[in-house]
C-alpha cells in the first residue's frame, strides 16, 4: 500500500507568542484506502491535525502531503480540496445554503459534477443519513442532529478520495450513529475511500483498522484496535477510556479471573464469559 497522507516532522502553533506547540514533530503516514480513528482528550490537537489535511491550516514547521500534493502548494489547493472532504466538528459552521438539498449539492457543484449525477448523489447521500424527507426544509432551522446529518451528507455527495470526519456522531441518536458508521465503513470497504475519523466514542473507534491516540500534540499510541485498547491504564491516564466490554474484562482480570485476550465488542465479551461460566460446571 502506498501512503495517501504523510505528515513529516509537522509542528504547529496558532500564534508566534504561544509558548507551547499545539502539534509537535508529528510523523505519521496513512495508507491509501485505510480507515483510521484518531482519539485524544479535549485540546490534544485532533482538530488542528485534521485541518492540516485540506490546508485550512498550514504547518508552522514540517510538511503535509496528501496524494502527493504538498498542502502548502497554493496552485494545487483546488486539487487538494477535491480529494479531501471534511466534516467539521460543529455542523452549524458548515451550512452554506438555505435549503437542505442545495446545501448537500454545494460541494459536487463546485467540483463541476454534471447536474444529473449531482441529483443522483444528493438523493443517495440524503438517504444514507435518513434525511430524505427534509430535502426541501430550511437548513438553518433543523435540530442539532439533523444539521449533523446534513453536514455528513454534504461530504458523501462529494465522493472524494478521502473523507475526514471530526466527531461526526457527537449529536446523533443511537440509530443514527449506527447508520453513519455503517455508511462510512461501506465507503471505505467498497469504494476504497480513505477515512480519517476523530471520535470520543471508543465503540466507534473499534470499527477502524487503525487507532491513533494523541496527547498534548504528540502521537502516543498507534496500532490496530486490539493492540491500542489493551493499554487500558495508559489510555485512562490521558483522559480516554476503553469500550465497556473491554473495561469489564480488564476489571475481572485484575480481580484474578483468568482472561488472556483483549475483547472489544459485546459479542466477544459474551463469548469469553460464556466459556468461563461453562468451564465452572
Amino acid at each position: 500500500m502506498k501512503p495517501f497522507i504523510s505528515f513529516e516532522n509537522l509542528s504547529f502553533k496558532y500564534s508566534e507568542e504561544e509558548p507551547r506547540w499545539v502539534l509537535e514533530n508529528i510523523n505519521l503516514t496513512i495508507d491509501d484506502g485505510s480507515f483510521v480513528a484518531v482519539l485524544g482528550h479535549n485540546g490534544s490537537g485532533k482538530s488542528t491535525l485534521a485541518k492540516h489535511l485540506n490546508a485550512i491550516l498550514l504547518p508552522t514547521e514540517g510538511k503535509v502531503y496528501v496524494d502527493g500534493i504538498d498542502t502548502c502548494d497554493e496552485e494545487k489547493l483546488f486539487d487538494l480540496r477535491q480529494r479531501v472532504g471534511m466534516v467539521f466538528q460543529n455542523p452549524d459552521n458548515q451550512i452554506v445554503a438555505t435549503v437542505v438539498e442545495e446545501d448537500v449539492a454545494f460541494a459536487p457543484e463546485n467540483l463541476g459534477v454534471p447536474p444529473a449525477e449531482i441529483r443522483e448523489r444528493v438523493d443517495w447521500a440524503l438517504e444514507a443519513v435518513s434525511m430524505t424527507e427534509y430535502r426541501e426544509a430550511a437548513s438553518y432551522h433543523l435540530s442539532g442532529g439533523q444539521k449533523q446529518r446534513i453536514a455528513i451528507a454534504g461530504v458523501l455527495a462529494m465522493k472524494p478520495k478521502c473523507i475526514v470526519l471530526d466527531e461526526p456522531t457527537a449529536m446523533l441518536d443511537p440509530q443514527g450513529r449506527k447508520e453513519v458508521m455503517k455508511t462510512i465503513r461501506e465507503l471505505n470497504k467498497n469504494e476504497g475511500i480513505t477515512i480519517v475519523m476523530i471520535t470520543h466514542y471508543m465503540n466507534e473507534a473499534i470499527m477502524a483498522d487503525r487507532v491513533v491516540v494523541m496527547d498534548e500534540g504528540h502521537v502516543i499510541l498507534d496500532g490496530d484496535p486490539y493492540e491500542v485498547f489493551s493499554h487500558v491504564d495508559e489510555l485512562k491516564s490521558v483522559g480516554l477510556d476503553v469500550p465497556q466490554p473491554t473495561e469489564l474484562m480488564y476489571l475481572l482480570k485484575g480481580a484474578g479471573v483468568d482472561i488472556e485476550k483483549t475483547v472489544l465488542t459485546d459479542e466477544e465479551c459474551a463469548e469469553v464469559l460464556y466459556n468461563l461460566l461453562e468451564g465452572q460446571r
Partner: peptide
C-alpha cells in the same frame, strides 16, 4: 431509534445462550 447500554447487551447475549 434508541438503544440499551453495550454492557446490557453482553448479558442479554449470555441469557440467549
Amino acid at each position: 431509534s434508541l438503544d440499551i447500554p453495550t454492557i446490557t447487551k453482553v448479558f442479554k447475549k449470555l441469557k440467549d445462550r
